[in-house]
Amino acid sequence: MTLLRANGVSLRRGGRAVVSGASLTLGKGRVVGLIGPNGAGKSTFMRMLAGLQAPDCGQIDLLGRNIGQIPPGLRARQLAFMPQDGEKPPPMSVRSLVALGRMPHGQMNAQAARHPAVTHALAATGLQNLCARPASHLSGGERARMNLARALATDTPVILADEPIAALDPAHALSMMHLFRQQAGQGKGVVIVLHDLVLATRFCDDLVLMDRGSVIRHGSPMQVLDDDIMRTVYGVTVRRVGDAIVPWALCR
């Protein structure tokens, strides 16, 4: 069953095509990795997939319905979005920030903070010991986990995460990727923007490779990432380590 489908989506900004003709399909139980060099339009594409930005043309369907026509409240119960880590959070407690994830279900304050989904999300991200701490005191990695916990607390069929592991050390990055996999195992669909190609090949069912606004290849990691693509898109040569590829040297 298809949870999220984008078809020929384009967006122009300031006379420049930021995204042009991008397509993506997310099925139940799947983890899709969105990869590509910086400035490829991945984040913009993600915002459109999340319904935060209407495309100029093309269509995005969430659970079979055009995402632009879904009321924001309903959309929030079907799709959780984790934007790129930006602003410093306020000194609210970690638990109360994670509890914001219950807002789409109309739960607030104490009622939300007590909800099992919140406790569960805190446990799943390993934050149960930090839940009373002010979020402004968290480290970068803890913050990323808190943002994920907030997204998980909404308990949506679709999760979109924009570079969730960019600030994480290898151990935490690995545990977070396991977490995404686990969510997919429960029948959810996950789209992640990634730069770590090793983790991408290891944890994603499908990869979508973007460059200069277009999806230039999609399919299984093995199909998408070959030496040729790595050279032309990323400008690096690669070395194969097991079934993963590792960027090795800059192309001359």
Binding site: R47, A50, G51, L52, P72, G73, L74, R75, A76, R77, L79, A80, F81, P83, G86, E87, P89, P90, M92, L97, L100, G101, M103, P104, M108, N147, R150, T154
Partner: peptide
């Protein structure tokens, strides 16, 4: 008030939580 809570994590999060 509720939207202000959601906004603590940024505009994108607030909008993704269903606030216009």
């Amino acid at each position: 008030g509720r939207a202000l809570d959601a906004l603590t994590l940024g505009e994108d999060v607030a909008e993704s939580l269903g606030f216009r």
